[in-house]
Write a protein that binds this DNA or RNA. Sequence first.
DNA 1: AGCAACTACTTGACATGTAAAACAACCGGA
DNA 2: TCCGGTTGTTTTACATGTCAAGTAGTTGCT
Lengths: 154, 154
Amino acid sequence: MTPRSIAEEIKQTRPFRSRSQEAVVALLRTANVLTRRVEAVCQSEGITHQQYNVLRILRGAKAPLPTMEIAERLVEQAPGITRHVNNLESRGMIKREQWAGDRRQVLCQITPAGLRVLERLDAPMDALDDAFAGRLGDEQLAAFIETLDLLRDP
Amino acid sequence: MTPRSIAEEIKQTRPFRSRSQEAVVALLRTANVLTRRVEAVCQSEGITHQQYNVLRILRGAKAPLPTMEIAERLVEQAPGITRHVNNLESRGMIKREQWAGDRRQVLCQITPAGLRVLERLDAPMDALDDAFAGRLGDEQLAAFIETLDLLRDP
DNA sequence: AGCAACTACTTGACATGTAAAACAACCGGA
DNA sequence: TCCGGTTGTTTTACATGTCAAGTAGTTGCT
C-alpha cells in the first residue's frame, strides 16, 4: 500500500541529498495539492482560499477585528488583506467600520450574508478535510499534527 | 517542549471542528512558513522559489526537457512555466532549443551559469532543510514523510 | 503644546499562478 | 492526401502576494 514516493513522482535522476530535503519537498508538494482542493471547494461560492480564510477568522472572532489582526492570523502582508477585505465588502460579505477608540484601525465584521456563504461551505469543507486526512489513523493523525506544530516552532 | 498549538496560535474562538481540519490548517500554515524561508534563500541569488525549482529539475534531468515536462514536475500550469523559462533564459541560466523530432516542443537545458547559481545555493538550502526538519528524530522524520506521501496519494 | 517616531492601513508597481483563447505542429483515419 | 482532433507552447487577461511609499492618526518626550 505504499504510495508513489516523491523521488519517483518527480522523476528526479538524483533524488534527494538528505532525508530532511525529502521532507521539505514532500511538505511543499502536499500543501500545493491540498491548496488546489481547497480552492476548488471555495470556487463553488465564488470566493478564493484566502477570502474564505478571512471570513472564517471573522466568524471565529466574537468581536469585529482590525485589519492587522486578520493579517497576523493569516500570515499575510497587510496590502493583500486590504484587498481581500475590499473585495468581500463590495460583495456584502463583511462590513467595515471606523472605531472611535483608535481611528487608524478599521474594524471588520462578517455580515449575515457572509455567514451564509460560510455555512454553505462548511459541509463540503468538512468533507474535504476528512477525505484528505481521514485515512490517517488516529494516532498517525495526532503525530502528524504534532510534527507540524513542532516544525513551525521558532 | 510543546510548541504553541495552532488552536492557540491563530486565536480562534472556535478552534477546530475536527482533528482532520486541524491537520489541514496546520499543513497549510507550515508550508506557508517554509515557503518563505526557501524564498529568502533563493533571493540571495536573485531568483524565486519556482525559478530555483526549474533549475533544479533541469539539473536533475540528464537530458534537455520539454517545457511541459517541467510543468508536470512542478505541478504548475504551462503559462507560468513559460514565463519562468523566459526569465531564466534572458539571464543566461538556461538555454532553449527547438527539437527536430517534434517542432512543437521546446527543449530546455541548464547552462553552466545556471549550474553555478545552483551550486551557490546548495549549501544554504541544505542548511535550511536541516534547520527545518533536522530537529525531528529519525523515525519521526520518516513517519512524517510517509504520511505526506500517503496524503498525496490519489 | 509641539514634534519626532511609530502604527494601521492604503495605494501603486511588479512578479507569479491560473483560466481561456490563439497557434503551430502532429496524428489517425477516410 | 486531406481533415478533424489532439498536443505543446505562448499570449492575454485577471486575481493575488509582496515590497516600497504615502497618508492618517497616536504616542512619548520635552
